[in-house]
């Protein structure tokens, strides 16, 4: 029989991030009523939009069973390039396509390393991390750049009355969600993450799909960099440093498995990114010691990863073959009850 405690634990594990989210809201709301004011909530969304966009791209890569360590550097390249074009007198209409094209190109080169040259994603994107940062430093001449008003429009404009970063964030989110849930490529990404070898045997063009995944990651990183630079108004040589870790953290916090094939952009990754920002914002509002932030953040991420690992271990235990299935029926019921929701 299934014990009550087991089920409760499974339920908690499955919704850990949502619980953390609610807990964070309650805790900060009680401590500082200002936290719950609409202006502040909007502010949280604004602050998290860049990270959420980047993490969306990362989710694609993780779902396919890869990893992309170069997103922070791609953000830097994109911001640097945007700054350069605007300072050189280019218009915003020129900046956006250039930046996006560069993001895709960087992603395509990452894809080339992993699919054609068959270098492990971790090492290939690690090398790319250095190279794109070097490229960005070359563009900026290793100096900080202050940007003119025109680029800041990306941060302050309000199409349809929605602040532009949130608008972009929602657009990216919606398209990512649709691609993953409703297109052949989206479903094939899940298949490749589940079992690459089987995907090849089934006739999926894995190489092409993986290339798309890295290009999307590059695209999202470039867009995230653009949004971020528009909000900050300046590009420093450390712009985007270690943002790859933040993106991975957001995706994992949102339930995307590092083992590939499981997770989703909405609500998953978005929730993860917004949760990170919520906690940071809340800590500011309750006047917490700023040095405590990373401790709390890493504790939260630890919970998320631990949940993922526990779930993974549990699944592999349950997928064990039973010799006497009629005896294992009880176990099977348990599987069904605490079952996984890998699909969109």
């Amino acid at each position: 029989m299934i014990r009550q405690g087991d089920r409760l634990l499974a339920f908690l594990l499955r919704n850990a991030t949502a619980f953390l989210f609610v807990a964070a809201f309650l805790a900060f709301g009680v401590q500082a009523p200002a936290f719950l004011e609409p202006a502040n909530l909007l502010n949280i969304l604004l602050q998290s939009s860049s990270a959420a966009i980047t993490a969306t791209g990362m989710t694609f890569v993780l779902l396919a069973g890869g990893i992309d360590l170069s997103v922070g550097s791609i953000m830097f390249v994109s911001a640097a390039l945007a700054g350069k074009v605007v300072l050189g007198g280019g218009s915003l209409a020129l900046v956006i396509p250039i930046v996006l094209a560069v993001g895709i190109a960087c992603g395509a080169i990452n894809a080339l390393f992993t699919t054609r040259l068959r270098i492990q994603p971790f090492i290939a994107t690690l090398a790319a991390l250095y190279m794109w940062r070097g490229l960005g430093l070359w563009i900026t001449r290793t100096r900080a750049m202050n940007l003119p008003e025109s680029l800041l429009q990306v941060g302050t404009a309000r199409p349809l009355g929605i602040p532009a970063p949130i608008f972009i964030f929602c657009a990216v989110l919606a398209s990512a969600h649709l691609v993953l849930a409703r297109t052949p490529v989206g479903r094939q990404i899940y298949a490749i993450g589940n079992d690459r070898e089987a995907a090849d045997k089934a006739g999926i063009a894995s190489g092409r799909v993986i290339a798309i995944v890295y290009m999307l990651s590059g695209l999202c990183a470039a867009l995230g960099g653009l949004v971020s630079v528009a909000q900050l108004g300046a590009v420093s040589p450390t712009f985007g440093n270690q943002r790859e870790f933040a993106a991975i953290a957001a995706a994992v916090l949102g339930g995307t498995s590092l083992f590939g094939g499981r997770g989703r952009v909405f609500p998953g990754t978005v929730l993860g990114a917004v949760l990170i920002q919520t906690v940071e914002n809340g800590l500011v509002i309750v006047n917490a010691n700023p040095y405590v932030y990373p401790l709390i953040m890493s504790a939260i991420i630890f919970v998320a990863v631990f949940t993922d690992s526990a779930r993974h271990a549990r699944l592999s235990r349950l997928s064990r073959r039973y010799i006497r299935p009629w005896q294992a029926a009880a176990h099977r019921v348990e599987t069904a009850n605490s079952g996984e929701e890998g699909k969109q």
Partner: peptide
Amino acid sequence: NLFTNLDVAENIFIAGFPVRRIACIPWI
């Protein structure tokens, strides 16, 4: 060679989904 994280229909059609093109994008 089945993908445990996908549903039965998706597994059957994984390498050749029936698609409808809307705005040049193939939707399942």
